[in-house]
Write a protein that binds this DNA or RNA. Structure first.
Length: 340
DNA sequence: TACGTAACGGTTGAC
DNA sequence: GTGTCAACCGTTACG
């Protein structure tokens, strides 16, 4: 049986998995280096990540304060919640001649929904047709008639708590919610397609998994379809294994951001929280990805304060030295002088 | 040369 | 169990 090979090599020689986010450690490193004043082009070259990706990650970070990737997969949360259906039913009962658009306005006016999760007129029409259309007919499962209503047509979990305004920007981008709120990431990393595994840097991403105390490791390590042998065993994206190991310990100069930015704050199980399950009752604000139950992430999140960044910037005469050290810590390669 | 971004092909997970 | 859909991903190429 031929095992598929998921890894690919980009133009810079870096290994990536199409469709999958970069390891968080690399994402963090990108932001970290940028914070040190290293140019994106240099970060791109040194980490062997496309400049487009570097640009995207940095832009995302500046916008949301999170280095974590967004929620992949899943479906948008339902807007036709039982509560909404109930309200529509009541509106329709009070005024059978009510138009769908009137109902929609009413839902907004009564704060049953907000502008972000109000059903469309067509959705309301569908509700009226499918669920409330025979409202006036006898035997209807209206409450109060002593007849137990059938099971709700829509299996629903308490998604009503879902609040778009706090979670999604007008552009649809997930933004940070209240710190520490709803950041419990319940879903374990669902995919065997973790880049860390694919790249063979499991230990880099999740040192604790080496011990494998929770059985999670086994699941990951048993992934049979990753042809790790196709990747260099000694280096990942230009990061020498020995340096990766060092990176795990993160013995970096305390003068840099590293002092309060753990190098690998996001273990794979932590990262998983941003994938899937983010809609509906599983949905979690992206911006809080750094502030979830992993205290390291919270710490990492804190480092993003622009004022902090400004305050923590080292004296200018140390910047170049720090940049050099930062990149040197990532690679065994000498930092080109052009990187200045 | 550096950078932003659209296009592209891919993955993911809810439905 | 499978297909669809809509979200996301990183790379590439272009300006």
């Amino acid at each position: 049986m031929e095992q598929p090979s998921y890894g690919e090599v980009n133009q810079l020689g870096g290994v990536f998995v199409n469709g999958r986010p970069l390891p968080n450690a690399i994402r963090v490193r990108i932001v970290e280096l940028a914070q040190l004043g290293i140019r994106p082009c240099d970060i791109s070259r040194q980490l062997r990540v496309s400049h487009g990706c570097v640009s995207k990650i940095l832009a995302r970070y500046h916008e949301t304060g999170s280095v974590l990737p967004g929620a992949i997969g899943g479906s948008k949360p339902r807007v036709t919640t039982p509560n909404v259906v109930k309200s529509i039913r009541e509106y329709k009962r009070a005024d059978p001649g009510m138009f769908a658009w009137e109902i929609r306005d009413r839902l907004l006016a009564d704060a049953v929904c907000d502008k972000y999760n109000v059903p469309s007129v067509s959705s309301i029409s569908r509700i009226l047709r499918n669920k409330i259309g025979n409202l006036s007919q006898p035997g209807q499962h209206e409450t109060g008639c002593g007849v137990k209503p059938p099971a709700p047509p829509i299996p629903y979990s308490p998604m009503c708590a879902y609040s778009y305004p706090n979670a999604i920007s007008p552009t649809g981008a997930k933004l940070g919610g209240p710190p520490g709120v709803g950041v419990g990431l319940s879903r374990a990393w669902p995919s065997v397609h973790t880049v860390s595994n694919i790249l063979g840097i499991r230990a880099f991403m999740d040192p604790s998994a080496i011990a494998g105390p929770d059985g999670y490791q086994q699941k990951m390590e048993e992934w049979p379809c990753v042809n790790r042998t196709s990747f260099p065993s000694h280096a990942v994206n230009g990061i020498d294994r020995s340096h990766i190991d060092n990176d795990i310990k993160y013995n970096q100069s305390p003068s840099s951001l590293s002092g309060y930015m753990p190098p690998c704050p996001y273990s794979s199980p932590s990262q998983c929280g941003v994938y899937g399950g983010n809609y509906g009752h599983h949905w979690q604000p992206q911006g809080t990805g750094l502030a979830h139950n992993d205290s390291h992430l919270h710490t990492a999140m804190n480092f993003k304060s622009p004022s902090d960044v400004a305050d923590r910037k080292p004296p200018s005469h140390l910047i170049k030295q720090q940049q050099h050290e930062a990149l040197s810590s990532v690679h065994s390669l000498a930092l080109p002088t052009s990187a200045s």
